[in-house]
């Protein structure tokens, strides 16, 4: 009898509420859940170690990788990035002279109500200073542009990722969009980011070990051997996180959300969907120390 009454009151409470029970976006509890999932899946791997991607979960690959990091092939590229950074006085557009700030990106800008990425702010800075983007071949994703971003990441090494999602509907909205993109299946092959980097992380897709989603953003821009090709010392190996998104989208035969490039060098802006994804994805790696640009295959 008591049970019935409780059930009835519960029902009336539900009935009384006008809106359907939609779970409120709660980034902090998402983050806790995300971490716990990977702690359970990879026992013994510590939070900081997740920043090393597949090398955190595979000993043989890790040893190989550590050898590569001893004489890092990205050094010349980082220097090239620093030179461009200084040449165009990029520091003047940023807090703290542009150094040691990457851990705060992406951040929600209250005034404009939008989320800003480091690369987005960098592009805005270059435009403000009327840099000849074409002459320096400065475009989102790769090359010289990614080299400047890589230099900025380099000055932030060791800082803990610290993305803030404030209790502001506009920020929560972007976060929620990014989260949905991460978990939604897409492309002809019908796979979500989470299919590969949550549920099947640690498994092999043919010869490729799938990295855990936790810690995936900590070391970007990366320097990939695949992208560098023969160019072992310059800037070709660099790619921003959104370049990687684009690659992972293409793998499942989904349309990549590349930067709009109408008029190529003039009006290029980042795709809002990838900005949202980066916001969510990076927030999930809060607390992990930055280590960019790291080497990846």
């Amino acid at each position: 009898m008591r049970k019935l009454i409780i059930a009835l009151t519960a029902l009336s409470v539900l009935g009384g509420a006008s809106a359907p029970a939609v779970a409120k976006t709660d980034p902090q509890s998402d983050l806790n859940e995300f971490r716990q999932y990977f702690y359970k899946k990879f026992p013994g791997v510590k939070l900081q170690e997740f920043g090393d991607g597949i090398y955190a979960i595979d000993k043989v690959r890790r040893d190989e990788w550590q050898l590569m990091e001893e004489f890092p092939s990205y050094e010349d590229g980082v220097n090239r990035g620093r030179k461009l950074f200084e040449k165009y006085d990029i520091g003047s557009c940023f807090k703290n002279g542009g150094k040691g700030i990457k851990q705060h990106y992406p951040y929600f800008d209250k005034q404009s109500g939008s989320v800003r990425t480091l690369e987005g702010d960098l592009m805005a800075c270059l435009k403000r200073k009327n840099v000849d983007l074409k002459a320096e071949k400065l475009r989102f994703f790769k090359g010289n542009f990614a080299a400047i971003a890589a230099y900025m990441a380099y000055t932030s090494r060791g800082e803990k990722q610290n993305v803030v999602v404030p209790d502001d509907e506009r920020a929560l909205d972007v976060y929620e969009k990014g989260k949905q993109f991460f978990y939604a299946k897409r492309g002809q092959l019908n796979m979500s980011c989470a299919d590969c980097h949550v549920y099947n992380s640690g498994m092999m897709a043919r010869g490729n070990l799938l990295s855990p989603g936790l810690g995936q953003t900590s070391h970007f821009p990366v320097w990939r051997r695949k992208w560098a090709g023969g160019d072992e010392t310059g800037v070709k190996g660099f790619g921003t996180i959104q370049r990687r998104y684009s690659g992972c989208n293409k793998q499942v035969r989904a349309l990549p959300m590349n930067a709009y490039n109408s008029g190529k060098y003039k009006t290029e802006t980042q795709h809002p969907t990838y900005v949202a994804l980066e916001y969510f994805h990076t927030y999930m790696s809060n607390g992990i120390r930055l280590n960019g640009p790291a080497i990846r295959q």
């Binding site: 498994m203 092999m204 897709a205 043919r206 010869g207 490729n208």
Partner: peptide, 18 residues
């Protein structure tokens, strides 16, 4: 098909295990 990206079977070359 690219089935061996995820499945092993007799004679499969470097199969995945999803």
């Amino acid at each position: 098909g690219n089935c061996f990206a995820c499945h092993s079977y007799e004679g499969a070359h470097l199969p995945g295990n999803i």
